[in-house]
Computed example of a mutant assay.
Amino acid sequence: MYTKLTGCLLLILILSSCKNENKKENADTWRTKKSAEENATHNQLLEVEKKEGWKLLFDGETLNGWHLYNDPNATSVWEVVDGELHSNANDESLTAGDLVTNDAYENYELILEWKIAGNGNSGVFINVQELPDVPTAWQSGPEYQILGADHMDYDVPEKRPGCLYVFQPQKNKVEIEQGQWNTTRIKQMNGKVEFYLNGVLTAEEDFSSPEWKSQIANTHFAKYPEFGKTTEGKIALQYWYFETWFRNIKIREL
């Protein structure tokens, strides 16, 4: 027999069920990628990363560990703004140039995030030899290409983001979302290098091989005697007239 008491109990069960469903929905929403990104803490290492040997190359507050290539005391275009390493392309009173690590590295894995102006051009140079008679980082260090999606070279196969600049097209095609953060990963072990863009392998090369020397000889880099010569050196971030932002720069030696 249906009574008022039975009706009340049924209503309570329905309300309770709705409440639980709302809790589940809220929990699922909390776990979404968007929420994770919004609540991420940048320029810090997780405990598991520390155990794996990762170290921060950028603390999110200072330029400690970095200096302007061949001009360490300059007031440069590089600055820290809101936890991001930023190249200030709007103040002509600042000294322009590439930002280079104080230390050199040989066998390592490097991860960083970047975004760039639509027509911007930048890169990560590796195995850089900082020498007084080598005016710029690119004259010694091979480049992981960073490029804005509106740049005129964006669709040039050997100049796309993630390429080993001018030497190879992307090994696997990958696009960037303009204005969004992109992830670069560079791994070098005994001269063998791998480039990744947003988790996709984009380049492989052996800098200790005779084939690499032959490749250099067939490009304009042949006239720079230090270019691509070693499998050890500093890491540099390229400045090239337009704004670029970097964060979460970390490295572990292998």
Rank of each mutant, 00 (worst) to 15 (best):
S122R: 03
P72Y: 06
N198W: 09
G65E: 14
F58H: 04
T32V: 15
K115G: 00
A137R: 02
Y105S: 14
N218D: 15
V166N: 08
S208P: 04
A104M: 12
K250A: 08
W114K: 05
V193K: 12
A137I: 00
Y241D: 09
L45Q: 06
G65L: 09
L112H: 03
W240R: 10
A96Q: 15
E61N: 08
G120M: 03
N73S: 08
E143M: 01
V81P: 09
N102Q: 15
L9F: 07
V193Y: 11
E194N: 09
D28F: 12
T41H: 05
Y239N: 06
Q180A: 15
F246V: 03
S214L: 06
P161I: 07
K33R: 15
W114N: 12
Y239W: 02
T3G: 06
N190C: 04
M152D: 10
T183G: 12
T41C: 00
I176C: 00
I111M: 11
N90G: 06
N119A: 10
N190H: 09
R160G: 01
L57Q: 08
M152F: 08
Q145G: 06
A40F: 12
F58P: 05
E143P: 04
Y108H: 04
V156E: 10
Y2T: 14
Q180L: 05
L110Q: 12
G120F: 00
G179T: 00
F58E: 12
K213E: 15
Q238A: 01
Y69M: 13
K23S: 14
C8K: 06
S214T: 12
S214P: 09
N172M: 01
N248L: 05
G120W: 00
Q145L: 02
Q188K: 08
L10T: 07
T184H: 01
Y196N: 09
S208K: 10
P135W: 07
E130C: 02
T230Q: 15
A217V: 02
S93I: 07
F207T: 07
S76W: 01
I126K: 03
G65I: 09
E38S: 12
D98A: 09
S16Y: 10
C18P: 01
N70A: 14
S140L: 06
G228M: 13
Y154L: 07
G123E: 04
K55T: 11
D155V: 07
E21A: 11
S214M: 04
N88T: 02
F242Q: 04
N182M: 14
D59T: 03
E158H: 09
E158M: 02
L13H: 12
W54D: 01
N20Y: 14
Y154K: 04
E49V: 08
V77G: 07
N248A: 10
V200Y: 08
K229P: 05
R185Q: 08
